[in-house]
């Protein structure tokens, strides 16, 4: 029972991070209609910036995270301006190839600047606490609460503010958005910023319990793709629900099946859910 509770909490922790990353991916998919493979690189850069800000600039973990959010958000916007915007009239395959190109470029760049080593990130929230008989680190609790807070904030922004709703409007009907007077270029910039910020938050939260290295985005981005396919491409509740479904399945699977197969679970889940609901759990655009 205690093991089960512990694993459920682990699932909640990784699920929260998956959900954050998948949310960024699904938002960009909604307006660009291409899978942005480079999203994994943003996640990786997010981890590095936080780490470097702590080790080199001596910033507090939370402050380092704020810097990372801004830097990766801007990097994401730069990506849109320099690569996706000029390609907006090109066939989608060119965007996809470009996205993979950015991913490889950023990874090589990270390796060039910071080296190929696996690095550890310290955290001021390393204490172990007992909650309901479970032994948890404060960092894991932080991950869950911070991620949920970010998701609530994002949901409020998208649902309740005019600026947020422009993102939804553009995802649901691009020309319709133009016809009500929305500047779709600005919406694209805003969306990329948010996606980058979410990737940076996800990476910064999880790095103290994982490791920082140039390839850290690979598995995460593959899983985020699985999540948004499961949840329905472009769907926001789908990304959140999909993130948690994967988080729970993985942590329970690792305990009760085998830890070696943990990373395969995502793909088995993908095949299972798509064979039952080919459109994903939610259809596109639902918020």
């Amino acid at each position: 029972m205690e093991l089960l509770m512990q694993q459920l909490f682990n699932g909640l922790t990784i699920g929260s991070v998956y959900a954050l990353v998948a949310l960024g991916l699904t938002l960009v998919y909604g307006i660009l209609h291409i899978p942005n493979f480079a999203h994994g690189a943003l996640y990786m850069v997010g981890g590095y910036i936080t780490l470097i800000m702590m080790t080199e600039a001596g910033l507090h973990y939370i402050l380092a995270m704020v810097v990372s959010i801004c830097v990766v958000g801007l990097l994401s916007v730069l990506m849109e301006r320099l690569v996706f915007y000029p390609l907006r009239h090109s066939p989608p395959i060119q965007d996809k190839v470009a996205a993979i190109g950015i991913l490889l470029f950023l990874e090589a760049l990270a390796q060039f600047i910071w080296g190929a080593d696996y690095r550890q990130m310290s955290t001021p929230f390393g204490q172990v606490v007992e909650v309901f008989g479970l032994t948890l680190t404060l960092q894991r609790i932080l991950i869950v609460f911070a991620a949920i807070a970010v998701m609530i904030l994002l949901y409020w922004f998208l649902k309740k503010t005019f600026t947020g709703r422009t993102i939804i409007a553009m995802a649901q009907n691009r020309e319709g958005a133009q016809l009500v007077g929305i500047n779709t270029h600005k919406v694209a910039i805003l969306t990329f910023f948010i996606a980058g910020a979410l990737a940076a938050i996800g990476a910064s939260l999880t790095s103290p319990i994982n490791l920082v290295f140039p390839g850290m985005g690979h598995l995460v981005i593959l899983k985020a793709f699985v999540i948004i396919i499961i949840g329905g491409m472009g769907s926001i509740p789908g990304a959140i629900l999909g993130g948690y479904i994967l988080g729970f399945t993985e942590s329970l699977g690792a305990t009760y099946l085998s830890a070696d197969y943990k990373d395969i679970i995502a793909f088995v889940l993908l095949i299972l859910i798509l064979s039952i609901k080919p459109q994903g759990i939610f259809s596109k655009g639902g918020v």
Partner: peptide, 29 residues
């Protein structure tokens, strides 16, 4: 649109997953 020309297109170009009131409010963007 800001200058005052607004089109109601042939294929309507509504926001299909937003409700009626939200669509109208977006019209007043």
């Amino acid at each position: 649109v800001q200058m005052g020309i607004v089109q109601c297109a042939e294929d309507r170009k509504l926001f299909p997953y937003m409700n009626v009131e939200q669509n109208l409010m977006m019209g007043g963007y």
